[in-house]
Simulated assay, not measured.
Amino acid sequence: MKNRYDTRTATVKRKIKLPRVAVILTALVLFGFAVFFVIRFIAKHASQPSAAAELETLWAAKDYESIYTLTETLLHDVPFQNLALTYRGYAAFFLALAQTDPQQAQSYMDTAVNSLRLSLISAKKNLKPQIEYMLGKTYFHKNILSAYHYYADLAVHYLTEALASGYTADDIYEYLGLSYADLGMTNESIAAFTEALSVNSSETLLLAIARQYYKNGQTEAAKPYLYRIKNMSTDEVFILTCAQLLGDIYISENNFADAKAEFEMILKKDPNAADAYYGLGLIYEQEGDLIKARAHWRKALKAQVNHPGALHKIDSKK
């Protein structure tokens, strides 16, 4: 009887002890997981200062590819980390500008837009204007790369937001002027370009403002900018472009002699200048010489088979 009793007692004791062991083991496992995650959290946050320093070093070296790679790793570990998002957006922007493949450039621009918009959500107040400025520039270049130019309004939005916040940059008004021009907002474009001239009088800017004045019917205001480019430029492409626009202005003013001189000068330097042939055709048409006019429009089509003006004139004069 004693042995049977002892056996049952031992079994009961084992049954009592087993659940306790399971509880202890479970607690140990949970504690282990807790320690692991705490260590991981501390390690990540302890590494942030070193990551920030590394990003600053890479930025100073203009090593945008390495910044792009490093921020991808940082965001994989800690999604929506503002510092990583900001650096990734900036790096993607400059990588896009360096691309020769438009599709690859567009892909980088998309990454820049997404990263900067996310970083803007949690950015410190004093950093938001700079991010808005970069977003405006990114949308401007995205607009250029896109088959359908739907992003000029976003470029204007973020650039004006940056200005309203007190942010300044030498190129901000030039970007604004070009974006307004894409939107057909000629007066706003001229105003922005005029502001830009106070810090920059590049040939590109002078030509841009002259085009806007011409588009707005203000030919007298456009001509001084074109004269400046012709007198100061050593770039033949700019000189010929200005001569073409001057020729168009002279035609609009019925000054056919000066217009003809501009177009003939262009053709001496570039015998395949379709627009110059087209302009000469317009002059001969106004002078009543349709034979010479059609001959020059045909030359324009030989230089550029799809020249819209010459195609229209040839079809309408049959």
Rank of each mutant, 00 (worst) to 15 (best):
G247E: 01
G247R: 01
G247T: 04
G247I: 01
D248K: 09
D248S: 12
I249Y: 03
I249E: 01
Y250N: 04
Y250T: 00
Y250C: 05
Y250A: 05
Y250V: 00
I251E: 03
I251T: 04
I251R: 00
S252Q: 11
S252D: 14
S252P: 03
E253Y: 07
E253H: 05
E253L: 14
N254K: 07
N254D: 13
N255Y: 11
N255L: 11
N255K: 12
N255D: 15
F256D: 06
F256C: 09
F256A: 10
F256T: 09
A257Q: 15
A257D: 15
A257H: 14
D258Y: 04
A259G: 06
K260I: 05
K260Y: 09
K260W: 04
K260G: 05
K260S: 14
A261C: 09
A261W: 09
E262H: 10
E262C: 12
E262D: 13
F263K: 01
F263A: 03
F263L: 12
F263M: 11
E264Y: 09
M265V: 11
M265E: 11
M265P: 03
I266S: 05
I266L: 05
L267Y: 06
L267E: 01
L267I: 08
L267G: 02
L267C: 06
L267T: 07
K268M: 08
K268S: 14
K268T: 12
K269S: 15
D270E: 09
D270Y: 10
D270F: 07
P271F: 05
P271C: 03
N272H: 13
A273I: 13
A274L: 02
A274Q: 00
A274V: 01
D275M: 02
D275K: 00
D275F: 00
A276Y: 06
A276W: 04
A276T: 05
Y277G: 00
Y277E: 00
Y277H: 07
Y278S: 08
Y278M: 06
Y278R: 02
G279S: 04
G279F: 09
G279Y: 01
G281S: 03
G281H: 07
G281Q: 01
G281A: 08
G281M: 00
L282D: 08
L282S: 02
I283R: 01
I283A: 06
I283W: 00
I283M: 05
I283V: 07
I283N: 02
Y284C: 07
Y284S: 05
Y284H: 10
E285Q: 14
E285Y: 12
E285L: 13
Q286I: 08
Q286R: 14
E287I: 09
G288E: 02
G288Q: 02
D289N: 15
L290F: 15
I291C: 01
K292D: 10
K292E: 12
K292C: 07
K292S: 12
K292A: 13
K292T: 10
A293P: 00
A293C: 04
A293T: 05
